[in-house]
């Protein structure tokens, strides 16, 4: 299998994973299901961006993936803080 084909298969798999995580975020009975879904989907977005950047031949898009990682972290911290102490400050 060519490198390009491998990237395609990987991209399709990540998209499938995104769909599954989305289902969990929508159905998720508890709050923690949704928090975990947001965090996992952030990670999958990072992978998708990385795959996309290599498929389209522009590895410099990896910078965007790095930013997503940081934002994902900040958002998760904010959500968890809200859940634990009921406010952000």
């Amino acid at each position: 299998m060519s490198a390009h084909g491998a990237l395609l298969v990987a991209g399709g798999t990540v998209l499938l994973a995104i769909a599954l995580v989305l289902v969990r975020a929508l159905l998720g009975p508890t709050v923690y299901d949704r928090i975990l879904a947001v965090n996992a989907l952030g990670t999958k977005t990072v992978i998708l961006v990385a795959i996309l950047s290599f498929t389209s031949g522009r590895p410099e898009f990896l910078d965007v993936a790095l930013l997503y990682t940081l934002i994902n972290f900040v958002v998760t911290i904010a959500i968890l803080k809200y859940k634990e102490i009921g406010r952000l400050g």
Partner: peptide
């Protein structure tokens, strides 16, 4: 939460 997911997908 879902709105945050929306923004990630949109980006």
């Amino acid at each position: 939460m879902v709105l945050s997911l929306y923004s990630l997908l949109m980006s």
